[in-house]
Design a binder for these strands. Structure first.
Lengths: 148, 148
DNA sequence: GCAATAATTGAGAATCAATCTCAATTATTT
DNA sequence: AAATAATTGAGATTGATTCTCAATTATTGC
């Protein structure tokens, strides 16, 4: 879980450092976003909020993203899915049910650094997505295919 | 480089297996795509082709993608960039000049399989993008920042 | 090869997410 | 509290992509 108070401080610090105003709209959207469980879409934010305009929601999500508090990934169907940034992690995406599983592997991180170093590339960040079938969907499948 | 003749066979086989027609439009687009050097955008195909309609280009690129001959990645600016599928590889993307560097690392592949196995996830494919600064842009930067 | 059938194409309309415009409003600065 | 600067909202606009459907072309069965 993310510390809301800390996130708000990070956000307001960011806004001040950029000479941007601290507005109720921006704080409302951040609050809404922090209360989202896991992953959410822009339309979720638009639907759940009856006060802030669509344009401001788009603008504000970009601002929150610039502040480093949220980021998005793309599903197989090219949908933008946002999430609150916690510690760095990568994603497994189930092709059957769409479930997004987060994982982190230190070996993967160091291997990536090695790969970059050997090619003179200076990495700032990366994304890795593994598509496949999650454990639950594997079970369903084998049940379906196994006659009794 | 990709063997064009083999690619055409793979494409026509795919079309037949799906009950789809083999049309000059489809073959033209595949031919154009195979002649693209490296990475290309849909608008490149639209511009370079004066015969086939925009709608058919969109439809056909999707068909060629379904046939497994091309795929796309997203840049930092969310642009769709297509490429002809060769052996599997991942990407480094320069945040300064936009250059796309392909790489392949067997250790990375086996590590991914290990990670999936330990979580009961059955992988079908993955994408990995490392964002950062390419060797050439690093050189430019250090030159700029170094007074003479 | 030829008719019957099925699939594809093109032109432009439609859609959809995202962005822009600009006057009205609100936050910040002094 | 006034002056200044930034933001907001409503709706228009954009731009990429998809859809529609009549006309065209490919495939199938003889």
């Amino acid at each position: 879980m993310v510390d809301h108070q800390y996130a708000f401080k990070q956000f307001t610090d960011y806004l001040r450092s950029e000479g941007k105003s601290i507005t109720p709209e921006r704080l409302d959207i951040l609050d809404l976003v922090l209360h989202e469980k896991g992953h959410f879409r822009i339309e979720d934010v638009i639907r759940k909020n009856d006060r802030v305009s669509r344009a401001t929601i788009y603008r504000t999500l970009k601002t929150i993203e610039d502040a480093g508090l949220i980021k998005y990934i793309r599903t197989i169907h090219d949908e933008k899915i946002f999430e609150v940034v916690k510690e760095h992690h990568d994603h497994m995406i189930c092709e059957v049910c769409g479930k997004i599983i987060e994982f982190h592997d230190p070996d993967l991180e160091s291997l990536q650094n090695d790969i970059c170093a050997s090619r003179g590339f200076s990495p700032t960040r990366h994304t890795m997505k593994i598509f496949g079938i999650c454990p639950a969907c594997q079970k369903h499948r084998s049940q379906k295919n196994t006659p009794e």
